[in-house]
Design a protein around this nucleic acid. Structure first.
Lengths: 193, 193
DNA sequence: CTCCTTGGCTAATTGAATTAGCTAAAAGCT
DNA sequence: AGCTTTTAGCTAATTCAATTAGCCAAGGAG
């Protein structure tokens, strides 16, 4: 009796896992549910990914890569406050649209410098670096500025994603306000010594 | 044969859980390990807490309360950039000293406005509000400013806690730089219209 | 001293990850 | 086409943590 193969591979599984995580929530993602989604039994997944942790890392790496692309596209041809706002909005959109993917990136400690997660998260910084280039930050301060941008926008995204904001005051407005705050801070930083 | 009771209650269990989470990592915290630490069998814990999720929420609420106390103490009698820096450092210290407690607060969606987690996290904002009072922020912008502070410092703490910073450039220095950035941003916000 | 509530225990259930070992599908080779 | 080898998917079995059921004694109330 011919039963054709499913034709799975790590990339397909990772993509399906990311999609499912977006639908049902990252913490709800399970090998069993993912297998079912792919029309396969859970042990079969282990022919392509080593473990659930491995799967999670692959999803996170994918998410970082997609974020980098989205940020890169959004900031193309823009500079200064314009680029900053575009990057911030692109990141926020990504988190809203792909909550599961985003959650996969939160709280994952890279195992080492060669970990795909580490590499991908580094690559995700590229667009932020491009944004900063428009601010004349002294080169030796670049790292600080980069870290500041990451902290700020990931912090906001994270709070928003977990319902951390309680009152009803418009969150979008707060976001614009935050962009202004950072813009002025960076502009000032460009000036000092 | 008299076997004396352990004399547990929810508060004791929560405290022990928080301490254990700090030691072995929040994700490693398990009902079994916690029970063992308390010299009791795991089903016994269910006489005091409803589930692991319930336990996690209690730990998170405890963590928020402790953070609020630490921030409050640190900012006592300070104002302006001074208060800002004190709050930021206190938060960072807390995260470094109590990684498990901090992790418990990340990614927990409050179940409702009456959720102890929600209440405690709100209470945790008090000190930030006090800091902002030293900046003459227009009252209608206060919410935005509060959200900005939370985003920024939680974002930094989170990245640091998960090894998100890769290069060796001194993280403490980046932290100081970030404080400056926010300080100038807030000062500017106080001025505009 | 007796009754009643309640905290802790053992045994059993459930659900998810993961491993072992089998078989047939693909892919290569002649 | 036939033969061999690799490998993807399957079922069965294991492990481990959460949780529930049901028992019993400890400790407080009268």
């Amino acid at each position: 009796m011919s039963v054709p193969r499913a034709g799975l591979d790590a990339a397909t599984i990772t993509a399906a896992g990311a999609a499912l995580a977006d639908e049902i929530g990252f913490t709800e993602l399970t090998m069993g549910k993912l297998a079912e989604r792919l029309g396969v039994r859970s042990p079969s997944l282990y022919k392509h990914v080593a473990s659930q942790d491995d799967l999670n890392r692959r999803i996170a790496a994918l998410a970082y890569a997609e974020m980098a692309d989205a940020l890169g596209a959004a900031t193309q041809g823009r500079a200064g406050r314009d680029a900053l706002a575009a990057a911030a909005h692109a990141l926020r959109d990504f988190v809203v649209t792909h909550p599961g993917r985003y959650a996969s990136t939160v709280g994952l400690t890279p195992t080492g410098p060669d970990d795909p997660v580490a590499t991908a998260s580094l690559r995700g910084l590229g667009p932020f670096e491009a944004v900063l280039r428009g601010y004349d930050i002294p080169p030796e301060k670049m790292t600080h500025a980069l870290r500041a941008l990451r902290s700020t926008f990931h912090g906001f995204a994270n709070l928003e994603a977990t319902n951390g904001f309680q009152w009803s005051t418009d969150v979008g407005e707060s976001f614009e306000w935050l962009i202004d705050l950072i813009d002025h801070g960076l502009r000032h930083a460009a000036g000092r010594e």
